[in-house]
């Protein structure tokens, strides 16, 4: 089963670069697995329209800014369960859910398993490198979740 692990972020926008850091860590860990592709993108929404093609499983690592969770919390959602009307996606507004609807409408194959791992971050409206909080716990949690899912 071909898997895509997609990090959405921007490594010159502070905490928004965390997904890229996670991808780097995962690439090191899975360097001999040829059925996993890793991708880092700073794009979103319809710019991702051709990215999922050919994958059975997609894990999207992204960031959110929510007052409902502690900074550094990792929130795990499985598509389509509890996602369509989730306010965090709405505020993040990456449009992936709509994008998947379009792909379905076009009768194009979408991955059998799609899930999101979201890291709750501080505001990242400043251009900078590095992170504003102790991110190691978040990374550890994400790695643990992904290793469990890939093993399955």
């Amino acid at each position: 089963m071909k898997t895509l692990i997609l990090g959405l972020g921007n490594d010159i926008r502070g905490d928004d670069g965390l997904p890229f850091y996670v991808i780097d860590e995962l690439e090191k860990f899975y360097q001999n697995k040829n059925n996993i592709d890793f991708l880092k993108l700073s794009e979103a929404g319809f710019k991702l329209i051709d990215v999922f093609d050919g994958y059975k499983q997609v894990i999207i690592i992204d960031t959110i800014m929510s007052k409902d969770y502690k900074i550094g919390s990792v929130i795990n959602y499985m598509y389509p369960k509890n996602i369509k009307h989730n306010k965090y996606f709405f505020s993040h507004n990456t449009g992936i859910i709509k994008l998947l609807e379009v792909l379905k409408e076009l009768k194009l194959k979408i991955p059998e398993k799609i899930e999101f791992l979201l890291i709750n971050i501080n505001n990242s409206d400043l251009f900078k490198t590095g992170f504003s909080f102790d991110y190691k716990k978040s990374i550890k949690k994400i790695l643990k979740i992904i290793k469990f899912k890939i093993r399955r």
Binding site: A44, G45, F46, K47, N93, T94, G95, K98
Partner: peptide
């Protein structure tokens, strides 16, 4: 900006 590029028109 995001509202023009990441959302459906009308949404």
């Amino acid at each position: 900006f995001a509202c023009a590029t990441h959302s459906f028109p009308g949404e």
